[in-house]
Each structure stands twice: as C-alpha cells, then as structure tokens.
Design a protein around this nucleic acid. Structure first.
Lengths: 367, 367
DNA sequence: GAATTGTGAGCGCTCACAATT
DNA sequence: GAATTGTGAGCGCTCACAATT
C-alpha cells in the first residue's frame, strides 16, 4: 500500500478542501484513458481482463473511490429516494408507523441500489414546499409523499412537473396519474366491528383519530358497514375522536361512559394508544375489560401484546406498505410508461384478551 | 406563468431524460451572465436589487430550481449527513432508540441546512464496508457511525482518511481523534441498583443484553459499584443476559428464580423489553411485582408507562444523544480544527410502580 | 468486421479574476 | 476606487463517436 502517495494526494488542497483521487489519477497510473477507468467502474461496458486488472491495481494503490456526486451529474440519476419528515411532531416518532415504514423503504431501496434521503421540516405547514424543493433539487430521483400531510395542490404540481412520486396513504382526491399505497383501514375496522357484533355486541362504539382525515373516513365507513351487516342501527352518539393520543382515547371513552343506560359494551379504536386510553378510562370507572366492555385497537403496535389484558388489535402491515411504495416508485423510475399503482393492503385482526361476548347481566338498550 | 415555455423545455430530451431548466436559460432570459444567476442563488455575493429581481422573475417564469448535485460537485459539499442502518435487524426498529435518534438527527441537521442519507445494509457484517463506501462516495459530508456495529479497524480507516464522523456509542477502544457520544449506561444502572439497595434489597439481580457489548460492560460496572456502596457482595449467579429481547429477559428471570432459597428480591434489566419479559416470568411463577420482587427497566421506552404495574425505568435521552452527535459532526465539518467530542449524557431514573421495599416475610439469604 | 480503447464535449453549477460602470 | 457584473476554467464523472488492434 502506497501510504506515502496517499499522504501526498491528501496534502494537495483545493479551495480549502482536500483534493481527492480521481479517475484521472488512476488512468495515469494505469496508462489508460480516464474513460477506460470509468468503464471499469460503471460495469456495463466490456473491458479486457488485463486492462481491468491494471486499472483496479492502480485504483487500489491510490485508494481511489468513485465520486457519486459527479456520476449523478452526468447520468442524471442520484439513486436516492426522498422523504420529508416532520421532526417536531412527537406522535410521528411514537407510532410504530415511522420505524416500520423506514425499515420497509430501506429494504427495497437497498436491494435495488438506492439510498434514502430524509429532509426534515420544523413546521408541518412547510411540508408541501419541502417536498417540492427536495425533488426539484434533483438530489432524489423520486419521492415518497405522505398523503395526509400534503394537499391536492402539491400532488398536482408533482404530476404537472412529471416528478416520480408515490403517496403513502390514500389521497383525499384521487387522480388518474396518482400512485398511492395504503393499508385498508375500512376493511380493518369492518372486520373488527364485525367480530364484535359476532360476539353478540349490539352497542359498539368507535373512537377515531381526527375527523377530517381520509383514514378516519375510511374507518367510519367500515364501522357503518359492519353495523349494517349485523342489523344494528347507526347511532352517532357512539362515535368519538381522540386525536390518535392515549389521553384523547381516554376522554372519548369517558364521554361514552357518561351515557348511562345506553353505554357501549364494546369499542373499536383507530389506534392502540387510544385503545389503551379507553382501557384506562374504563378502569377508572371500575368497568372490567373484557367482561363488561370489549376493546379493540388498530395497527397492532408492539405494545398491544404487552398490555393487561393483552389488546385485540387489527395488524396494519406498514412494513409491507412501505415496501410496496418503494417498489412502485422504483418501477416509475426505471419503467418507461408504467401504470399508476393504487393499492390497498389488507389488515388482519389479531384476537387477544381484551374482547369477549357481552355480559349476560348487562342487557344493552336499543337507542 | 409561461406554461407553454415549460412544456417546450420539458419536451427537450437528453439521453432519455427530460432536460431541466438551468442557470443558463435563466441568464439568457434575464440578459445577464450565468454567474450572476449563480450569485443570486448562492446568497453570499452582492447583487444589485434590480438585477436580482430580473433574475428571479426570469427564474419564476421558467420554473427554475437550482441543481443541488451540480452545486455539490463544485463546492465539494453535499450538505448531507450519512448513517448506515441494518434493515434486517428487527430489534433495531422495535427499540425506541431508532426513532428517537432519527428525530434528534433530523432536528439538528435540518436547522443547519443538512439532510440525512440512510444507506441500508442487509447483512450486519457488511456495515463497516457500507460506512466506508458511503463516506468515500462523497455523497455525505460526514457520517454518524454506530460504535457497537463497527470495529476498531473501521474507525482507524475513517481517522486515517480524515473523514468527518461521530460515533454513536462509546467505542471499545478510545483513540485521541475519536469523537463519540453515549448515554451514561454505567451511571443509569448505578442509580437503579442504588435505588433498589436504598429500598432495602440485598439480593439484586442484573439482566444485561449481550455480554460483549460496551454498554453491557458499562452497566455491569455500575451494578457492581452500587453493590459495593451498599456493602453487598457481588454474586455472579445473579447476573444473566437476555439479548435485549423480551423472551431473553423471561428466560434469564426463570433461571434466577430457579435458585431457590437465594432468589433475588429485585432485578435491574438493561432494557424495558427484558424487564417486561422478567415480569412475565415472575407472573408465571406467581411472584407478585413489586410486593415479592421489584423490577427496573432501562431506557424508559413509551411502553414503560403502559404496563401493569407501570415500570420503573431509567430514561435514556436518545433524542438528546442524537442531537449532540449531529452537532459534533457539523462542528467538525464547519470548524477548522475542533476538539474531538467525548460525551456521556446522564440518564434519569423514573420511579413508577414496579419497585418497592422487599417483603418482610421473605428474608433474603446471603449467598 | 468485431472487440477494445481513446477522444473530448458535456452534465449544471461556482469561484478567482478581469472588466465595466 | 468601490460596487457590480462578465469571463471562463474547473469540479469528476459518462457517453457518443472515432480510432485502433
């Protein structure tokens, strides 16, 4: 190893930064043209074994490593997928959504030779702007956009400017060119409530996150469909919202418990934190779970198996969701004219100990 | 808005990819030289108000956005911090460590104009190689390296090649030039065990993660120090390892419970999952927590407040840790010759319901 | 003629220096 | 002379084409 050479190279400075070994230095040492060195590293061109070896030997001697930035500039491909993350939003990092999505994205991206660029935004209101800036800067070839965090106007600009992107979440308004992937929240809530009805419950409450979110609309649709199937009339007093937080779930549950005489005997919550909040509120009032009230969560976060009683919850395959998103995005990047992907991934109810048939003694009253 | 112009621009293709609007197009339209446009966007140079306006108007008309890749190539700065993530390691994504670290990194990075590049590795054994490749490719200006995941050889290469990097975690072997940040696991365990001893416990067990990890060595040191302070002799039979997983914690606890006559009355675990596993094993054997055995976790993950009984745990400030790491890394990048940072961040014991004085009836026997 | 290698413009910026007002 | 703008080489690669064996 020519340590000496390296030190000499490093001591050369340009604009205050150390000069790096380039393809030209390698070419010189190997007595070939720089394009030949380029061919060895780009992989696709055919190079004689002898030349390749000479080049690689020279590269090793000089400790040469190709500059990905320079390559990106000429190929117009960064091999990077982008995502904007609202780093001030605590709940974003508490939810299993975030780590599972990043794991799924890394997985597919890495296998296909892509990396992930995360751009933080302090103010969630800046998220649409950050998305546009990131993709326009050409640092990323495509971008994963969280549908619930940008408006229709942003997706319109992305489409108009022909940027490759995939929405994580179903958009409020679909459009022909839009690609999106989402967990099937409607089906998840449908199955959860259907399961509760099947156990014999007739007064089943629903605790959603934020009323205006698409996922909430979807869940509510599943809820109503399950009621209809079971011949249970819809009662809007049994619907509450907890903002996806534990305390919000507890408050919603307290309001539900305040309706004496027509209290629910079961509740389906839009995430596990709110379900835990509901369990907490039930415990406060001395209502036993599941004997006197069944509770079902959503998304099946790791905590669901650790609570007491262990929480029945519908598993949301966020990992798989992210993998689909990355696949769809890379397909857009590689494929000439690929069809937009619009995909709902099914959830699966995981039955544990927080659900049981209604107590015989507590006959539900029909509104 | 010259939509028409845009469409014309886009229709121009180069090597199969759409031709983007560049600084030259803007210069032409604004009747200035391209370097003037560059000055407007680079910010630092002084430009007359009139020229700036003309340039910005032209840029807006053409929907121009600077190419960050090209800028990086000339300035030799990507304004990106890198990190390698082992995406096949389930526990990595289950632990609060990962989301909290990413939140902290995003926070500091974003405020300083940096982004985060994540490079996935399938096989954890490839992590050192991936770290070197990422930083050598010049896609990132500096890199956050997880100390427990690379060897001394990797840090030596990073130092020798003068790459800016900060270790997340205390290295096995420190070196003069190394910068690292770590949560003070020794102090955390010291306080936890000191607290248990203060409650009157004399047979206190310790459940570590993996025996060979630096963090485990640190915790064990804190454990022994606390015992010494309390005048309790060290008994190696009271030390077990659970691999940071719930089931591992349960198994370690079962082994501890098998020592009849000299069972521990308290246990300190190196993370909350193992503490929960221990609680599960205790429940299996009908040992009540905390009445008959106290349990302390580590890191204070969100689940700690949700278990039954709620878990006493030492809070590990991973968010702050990541912020320190990012700050130290950016300081290296900006500062000429900054001192290496070697920083232990204190943890804080959060007392909840899983700890109590030992039961009077169960007199501990002294090994 | 087929396989391999050389040639040199170009990717879209920035910066030192020169020229202009 | 001070403030602003133009000039053009250069960052480190790749790719179409030409030249060579």
């Amino acid at each position: 190893m020519a340590r000496q050479d390296l030190v000499i190279c490093w001591s050369v400075q340009l604009r205050g930064r150390p000069m790096k070994v380039t393809i030209k230095h390698v070419a010189e040492l190997a007595h070939v043209h720089s394009s030949t060195v380029s061919r060895v590293y780009s992989g696709k061109a055919k190079i004689s074994a002898a030349t390749r070896e000479r080049v690689l030997a020279a590269a090793a001697q000089l400790n040469f490593h190709p500059n990905a930035i320079a390559r990106s500039l000429t190929t117009r491909r960064a091999h990077v997928l982008g995502m904007v993350i609202p780093y001030t939003q605590e709940e974003f990092f508490l939810d299993p959504f975030f780590p599972q999505v990043l794991q799924g994205l890394s997985d597919v991206a890495c296998r296909q030779g892509f990396r992930l660029l995360l751009a933080g935004v302090e103010d969630p209101a800046d998220e649409p702007e950050a998305v546009l800036q990131l993709i326009r800067s050409q640092q990323v070839d495509g971008i994963i956009v969280q549908a619930s965090r940008v408006g229709v106007d942003t997706t319109e600009v992305l489409l108009a400017e022909q940027h490759p992107f995939v929405l994580l979440g179903r958009p409020l308004q679909d459009a022909p060119g839009l690609s999106w992937v989402e967990v099937d929240a409607r089906q998840a809530t449908l199955e959860a409530v259907r399961y509760l009805a099947g156990l014999g419950h007739r007064r089943i409450a629903f605790i959603g996150g934020h009323p205006n979110m698409v996922v909430t609309i979807d869940r509510l649709e599943g809820y109503r469909q399950a009621l209809e199937e079971a011949g249970i009339p819809y009662d809007e007093r049994l619907v509450g919202y907890g903002g996806f937080r534990q305390e919000g779930g507890a408050e919603a549950m307290r309001r539900l418990l305040a309706m004496d005489g027509s209290r629910p005997t079961a509740v389906s919550a839009a995430n596990d934190l709110m379900a835990l909040g509901a369990m907490q509120a039930l415990a406060e009032q001395g209502v036993r779970v599941p004997a006197e009230c069944s509770v079902v969560g959503s998304n099946d976060s790791p905590i669901a198996a650790l609570t007491n009683p262990r929480l029945t919850s519908s598993y949301a395959p966020y990992y798989e969701l992210a993998r689909e998103a990355a696949r769809a995005l890379i397909a857009q990047l590689e494929g000439a004219r690929s069809e937009p992907v619009k995909r709902l991934i099914p959830c699966r109810l995981v039955v544990r100990d927080s659900t049981a048939p209604p107590a015989a003694g507590r006959a539900p009253s029909y509104g």
